[in-house]
Structures are given as structure tokens and as C-alpha cells.
Design a protein around this nucleic acid. Structure first.
Lengths: 239, 239
DNA sequence: CTTGACATCGAACACAAGTTCGTAATATAA
DNA sequence: TTATATTACGAACTTGTGTTCGATGTCAAG
């Protein structure tokens, strides 16, 4: 209403601590969830009880040109720029600030003690159901990912417990038939007619299979009856 | 029961015209506005009067792996892939450049039996060194990520073996001081002066702490001497 | 001590937006 | 046909979420 003096137009003014935290929170949740947070979500994150205070500060942020708001629209805000880095592309569209290389690992079945490991066939690169794909950052698998012959299995049963692997865990495997000492592998043992996960050590004509659980004793088997099904790259457990 | 041979997984399914239009509309508005549309907005755009029909088709799209939805959240959906850009076509390991929503989880320290869990301070959402951050796809943590108060710890020592957690494993935690029955939590026990990972069950004035390893017996402790340090969301092991 | 701009708070309010459910139309199979 | 699953409809219903507003607190200028 009343403009006493020549008030500075929308100026980038210095942001308060609160506003900075809000901005960061928006940025983080946006990249994580794919959509902006609500006023109340922001409030909870930044420790503000009153929605109106959040609203107030959001308006400040808009005046300073950091965000843009859509009236009456739930989650109706977009990031225009972030704190230090200007580069939030034009219409708030771009996500991850750093491009993360993601590996798409198909879930091809279950691993049980009583059967050999299911291995994807030649149709590997072909189709697999999209809901059965795990997206994993490459760095989680290390650079040991070879030729795209990586797949995942859901563990069924409690039989892998000596590998510290639980029922329902996910084992990420690299398809291969040989192994180096120290590799963790999925092997099929003729003698016991079972699949098991063990650390692999070649010792002459024998193979020492060492459980991950150091409490447990290794087993020694004839190298000829050890059939390597794949090398274990990672184990995931969602609680 | 009455499925003789159709072992086809749930839904390879081609999308209906409607679903394609919906998908395109989501993509368009998302890039335009920076946030996803509501059910009613979609309905109006695709000429569907009933919100439940839109809802129905959104669920179909989720089943087919095109989108991901967050229950009860306005605009709570994110695009996983679009119509023409079939991200997952090639080899199993294909660097996906499609946008996957990634949670940046800071590695804040080590978890050992002999000390309480390190918890990040109030500067949580702030900056952390890039090399100490794990990038995890949201869907790996489920949507149980609450407030972004998620952090990771590297396990030190073999003391968590009854939780089937090994030395050097990574435990992803959500900061919280309470738990529901069945949650896996990191707790500090006064009596033993140690941190341990267990499934949590409240039983009157006592708490039953159940090891993940079903071979092992639960322990019962007075509720007052149980201090929950966080809820375990996932365990990762790189071999 | 007042004054007033600025930031904060809490609570009530109104509408936005997801969910549910009974029903009907349309397919597909037996 | 008759049965069964899929898709569609619309109208409540519940909850999510932005908005408004009066009251309070702070702090520096008058």
C-alpha cells in the first residue's frame, strides 16, 4: 500500500539462515522425490511450526528470485537457482546436480540352495520386465562390472546364512565361470547338490570354499565338482 | 491354482492409448511446470471425467514401470521412463541417462559395538564432501525415507554378525528415536554398553530384541535402558 | 518510551487432491 | 449363452495443503 521511500525493487538481498536451509531442503527433496515439498514438509524439516512462517519465507525467496511459486497449487514451486551454483537450468527441470551413472540390473529370479543359479540366457540384453530392474549407482558395484553381464537374484530361504546373506536379500552377480582367489562366488556343488555363496580359493587340485562368517569352517572340495555360477558383486538388504 | 503354464510375469502389457496420452501429458507438464500434475489435471487433459479412472490408469502405468507413485501425496508421482526413450533396451548394464531420483546419503562415520551410533548434527541438510556420499536410488530405500534424515555408517568389526552384518558393510539409517514393532533398529544398551542391530518389539515394559539371524535367541531388556539410535533402512555389502 | 518495519507464531479456514465404492459397460474365455 | 476379468464411470468421503489473520516478539530509529 504505502511506499514510504524508494524501496529497492526485488533485490537478491541476503538470505537468512532459515531461507538458506529452506532452499537447500527444497533442492534436496526435489532431486530425491521428483516433486517439490509442501509448506508443512518444509516446516518440519527446517524446524518451523507455523505454516505461515514458511509461507512468509517462501515469498521472500521468490522475491529474491530463487524460486517461483504458483498460487493455490499444492507443491507449486520451482527452483530457479541454488545457493552457490547459479546453474539450475531455466525452468527448474533438471534434476541431479551431478550425473550419476546408473547400472540397470535385471532381477532374473531367485537363488535357492537346492538349485543351480538361474542365469539369464542369450536374450540377456533383451527384454526383462521393467519392474524387475534395480537401478544401482556404478560406484556401488565398483569398476568390476565387466560386460554388462550383471544380474540380480533374490535369495530364497535361510540357507545362505553362513555367507551372512538372509532370506530376501538381493545378490548382484556377474556372470562368469572362473574365479580368482578371494572372489566371492556362487557355486554349485555336485556332491551336495546345492548352490552356495563362498569365498573362492584354489589350492592345488582342491578348492577351499570359505564362508563369509568367520565363525564357520571352510570346506574343501575337489576342483572338478565345483561349478562357478557367477561372481558376487554386492549384497543388498532392504529392511 | 488354475494357471497351467502361463508363467509370464505380471505385465509385459502394451499401453493403451489412454495410458500413452497420460504419460505424454505428465512428461509435458512436468518439464513445463517443474512438478507433476494432479489426477484431475490429467483427467481434464486426457478427457476423462472420473478421477478414479485416471487413478486406475496411473496404477497401470506404475505396474508397467513407467511411473512411480507416492500414496496420499498430492502430485506424488515421478516419471521413470518415457514412451520413445526406452532407457533399458540395451545390455543389462547400460549407463542410463534417464533421470532416476537419487537420494544422497552422507557417510557420517563408523558403527562399532562399543560406542553409540554417530548421528549427523543439525547441519544435516547442509554440505557434505562428495566423496563421502552414497548415491542411492530412492526405490532402493522405498518411500520410507522420511525427512531426508538418512545417513550411512560403515560397520567396523564383526560384532554385528548376529544381524547378518559383516565388517565393512554399509548400514543405511534413518535418524529417529522411536520405533514400531518389527523395525530393525540400531540401539544402545546401557547394561551392556554397546550398540547393536536388532529387530524391535515392544512387550509391555520390556523390549524384545530379535537378531536377524533366526538361529540366535532374542534378548529381553528393560525398555528404559534401550536407546534407539536410528532405524535401519538397508544394508549394503560390496564384495 | 513510543513507533513501526520485520519476523514469528498458532489456529481457523477453504479449497485442492487422493481414495473408496457401488455400478455399469466392454471385452475375453468357456 | 454364461461366466469372469478388465476398464470405465461418478459420486461421496477423507486428508492434504495453501491462505488468512490477529497476536506476539524484536530491534533499531525517533
Amino acid at each position: 500500500m504505502s511506499e514510504p521511500k524508494s524501496r529497492r525493487r526485488r533485490q537478491p538481498q541476503k538470505l537468512s539462515e532459515r531461507q538458506k536451509k529452506i532452499l537447500q531442503y527444497i533442492e534436496r527433496t526435489y532431486t530425491e522425490t521428483g516433486y517439490p515439498p509442501t509448506i508443512r514438509e518444509i516446516g518440519k524439516a527446517v524446524d518451523i511450526d507455523s505454516t505461515s512462517v514458511v509461507n512468509y519465507n517462501l515469498n521472500k525467496l521468490e522475491e529474491s528470485g530463487y524460486i517461483q511459486r504458483e498460487k493455490k497449487v499444492s507443491r507449486g514451486l520451482r527452483l530457479l537457482k541454488t545457493l552457490n551454483s547459479e546453474p539450475f537450468t531455466e525452468l527448474g527441470v533438471k534434476l541431479a546436480d551431478d550425473t550419476i551413472n546408473v547400472v540397470n540390473v535385471p532381477m532374473v529370479g531367485k537363488i535357492v540352495a537346492s538349485a543351480p543359479v538361474p542365469v539369464p540366457g542369450d536374450d540377456f540384453g533383451m527384454y526383462y520386465d521393467d519392474d524387475d530392474v534395480i537401478h544401482l549407482p556404478v560406484n556401488l558395484l565398483g569398476s568390476r562390472v565387466k560386460d554388462g553381464e550383471v544380474y540380480a537374484l533374490r535369495v530364497n530361504g535361510e540357507s545362505m546364512i553362513d555367507a551372512l546373506v538372509n532370506h530376501n536379500d538381493i545378490v548382484v552377480l556377474q556372470r562368469q565361470e572362473t574365479a580368482n582367489n578371494g572372489d566371492m562366488v556362487a557355486v554349485w556343488l555336485d556332491e551336495n547338490s546345492e548352490t552356495t555363496l563362498k569365498y573362492f580359493y584354489r589350492e592345488g587340485a582342491k578348492v577351499r570354499l570359505q564362508p563369509a562368517n568367520t565363525m564357520m569352517e571352510p570346506i574343501y572340495v575337489d576342483a572338478r565338482q565345483v561349478h562357478i555360477q557367477g561372481r558376487v558383486l554386492a549384497v543388498l538388504r532392504q529392511i
